[in-house]
Write a protein that binds this DNA or RNA. Structure first.
Length: 116
DNA sequence: CATCTGACCTAGT
DNA sequence: AACTAGGCCAGAT
């Protein structure tokens, strides 16, 4: 099989695995994920992969992934309109006006805390 | 088949 | 510090 397909598969697998490793009550960013799996700059692909994560087994907590500013940019893509915010709040993360409150405090850096 | 778009980020001006 | 441009790469049109 073509190398490209393999790369995509690995990329997707890594994104899923890393995202599942995000502790409850914490969030991370697309760029941080991309960087820690060796694809720095490919943050847009992370979004695409997460979009396919809704049907993934086991489920991927895509609601814990936001952009660099702590903004819930992907909430409109969730199955239900307020799913992302609701789930975050259920985990103890405060969300106001589509923004994670105290973002720096709840930010989870995969490169530091996700050790193989 | 060509062009645009997007759950983004960094760097340059 | 605000703004622009470029890069990333797969889907959609």
């Amino acid at each position: 099989m073509p190398d490209q397909d393999v790369k995509v598969d690995v990329f997707q697998r890594d994104v899923f695995e890393l995202t599942r490793a995000i502790p409850s009550g914490r969030v991370t960013s697309y760029g941080a994920i991309a960087k820690s799996i060796g694809s720095a700059g490919a943050s847009r692909r992370v979004g695409w992969v997460l979009n396919t994560s809704f049907s993934a087994i086991p489920p991927v907590p895509a609601h814990r992934v936001v952009n660099r500013k702590g903004m819930l940019t992907g909430r409109m893509h969730f199955p239900e309109e307020h799913a992302m915010e609701t789930q975050l709040k259920a985990e103890g993360i405060e969300v106001k006006n589509d923004m994670v409150v105290n973002f720096e405090a709840v930010f989870w850096d995969p490169q530091v805390e996700w050790l193989d």
